[in-house]
Amino acid sequence: MNRQHTLTYFISSIFILAFCVFVNAQNDSIPSTVKDTIIIKEKYGLRIGADLSKLGRSFFEDEYTGFEIAGDFRLKKRLYLAGEIGFEEKTTITDYLDITSTGSYLKAGVDFNLYQNWLDMDNMIFFGFRVGASTFSQNLNSFTIYTTDQYWSPQLTSNDLQEFDGLTAIWTELIVGIKVELVNNLFLGLNAQLKFMGTETEPDNFGNVFIPGFNKTTDSSGIGVGYGYTLAYRVPIYKKNK
């Protein structure tokens, strides 16, 4: 009796083991070449948008007027040719200076998408580089002499308008940001820019306090910062398999 039980146990164990091997063997025999047959196409096209933050600031800030059109064109799976063109007018008022800077700028470069999209999603987390150039003018509306000694105060204040025309600047930019497809072909983007001044025309006995496209300059370094909040529409031109 006991012996028979042992035998039954042994046989069934063998059977189970054999089955396992059989199942494994069958798994191995499934050809691995069978793939998802859905082919995902990626859209390639020209994306054109406007900077909402500049529009908003133009509306809400008395001392600022600006507009920017941004565009990019998809060259490769992850590589985009990108550029911006814009106009800005900004009045900088400090305790000692009152300056209006006006001009336009052009920026061109590439964006590189770091984001691995699922299926047919088309979002971007990107970084990129730009070369920017601006032609602008500055009007010195008024200034007050700076001195650390206020024994003879008030100091001289000049209200004679001085105009500095034909100024130029060239700089490079590092840009990081995201672009999210809200609805088909409509994108919302957010980006931040770090700018490094190359060359600028130094006006005679004056300084460039604000350069359109480069934004506020600093005394201590040639570094500028900026941000953008863009709404863009993509004109699809062709599709490519993912």
């Binding site: 400090t94 700076y146 001195t147 006995n205």
Partner: peptide, 15 residues
């Protein structure tokens, strides 16, 4: 006689 000379963004002009 006085001359006004530009110093910097933060300091403006000096005499």
């Amino acid at each position: 006689s006085r001359e006004n000379v530009y110093v910097s963004r933060a300091c403006g002009y000096k005499t």
